[in-house]
Design a binder for these strands. Structure first.
Length: 279
DNA sequence: CTCACATGTTAAG
DNA sequence: TTAACCTGTGAGC
């Protein structure tokens, strides 16, 4: 489920259901029992997201730091809480009006101080979904790195919140080969990608899906079957390997980069050629 | 039913 | 570079 847009949606949902209220915190599964008891029945002041990190702030400058990892989920619901089903690592409950939130499968769920939160945030690159994000910080890394742009986009110290789907789709939309070295990009190219990423991710926050295809490539426009995939959105290349590119018809390719599946169109995203070739 | 795999990250070798 | 962690889903038997 989780790239940055998912975490921002969660922060909004938590604010909506719990902010300003005294909240019961428990750990039905037990692994978070000690920390849960420390914030139990205190005021939840607000939730905030930075990249893929969620911080739920309680009175006294204490934050529950959550990272969903690959398979975590945080279900936030209005209404009376049911009996916990499965391994609920953290449950929050509000009474007025009733609401609950169940955290499962997260890789991180810990109580941190204000300083602890700052230390985590300081290690993250700019988050395209935050108003205060400064793309210059990301460009400082990308513009002088020989690492592949496909790896840099996923590096949370470079950009906070980009995951495998946004990586693949952003590179496709900008006709950029994933292995192109970061330091061969021009600033204008990077800024165009950043602007696009902000748009795509904001749309993801609104809809809860990752949709990246332009109007002319939607299933309706092309008369093709809508794609039903886990992430639920319409995309150009992500997990479409072996299928025809929606733009040029070439077979979408796949490979592994930094231990993650990579997808790209070999025709729309040609290998980068250095300037030495021409002239 | 069992198995592989997944929008992620860390730590060990 | 690999394994480990944790849960849900879908494919295949």
């Amino acid at each position: 489920m989780p790239e940055g847009h998912t975490l921002h949606r969660l922060a909004h949902a938590i604010d909506e259901q719990f902010a300003g209220q005294i909240v019961a915190a428990s750990s039905p599964q037990g692994r978070f029992a000690d920390s849960a008891s420390l914030v139990d029945n205190t005021v939840l002041e607000g939730a905030e997201t930075w990249g893929k990190h969620l911080f739920i702030g309680f009175e006294g400058l204490r934050h529950v730091h959550v990272h969903l990892g690959l398979i975590g989920s945080f279900q936030v619901q209005a209404g009376p809480p049911p009996l916990p089903v499965g391994q609920v690592r953290l449950r929050l409950e509000a009474r007025t009006p009733p609401a609950y939130a169940d955290l499962r499968g997260a890789t991180t769920c810990e109580l941190v101080s204000d300083e602890g939160r700052r230390a985590i945030v300081d290690r993250l690159g700019p988050d395209p979904l935050r108003e205060d994000a400064d793309p210059g910080g990301a460009w400082a890394r990308i513009g002088r790195s020989r690492a592949p742009i496909g790896a840099l986009l996923m590096d949370q110290e470079v950009l906070g919140g980009v995951g495998n789907v946004y990586r693949a789709e952003l590179l496709f939309r900008h006709r950029m080969h994933p292995l192109r070295p970061g330091n061969t990009l021009r600033l204008a190219q990077f800024l165009a990608m950043w602007t696009d990423l902000v748009d795509l991710m904001r749309y993801g926050v609104l809809t809860g899906r990752i949709d990246t295809v332009r109007p002319e490539h939607t299933p309706e426009a092309m008369g093709r079957e809508p794609r039903r995939d886990d992430h639920g959105g319409e995309v150009y290349v992500y997990r479409r390997h072996g299928q025809p590119c929606l733009v040029c018809g070439a077979k979408v390719r796949t490979d592994t980069l930094v231990a993650r599946n990579l997808f790209w169109c070999p025709r729309c995203q040609p290998r980068f050629r250095s300037r030495a070739r021409s002239r």
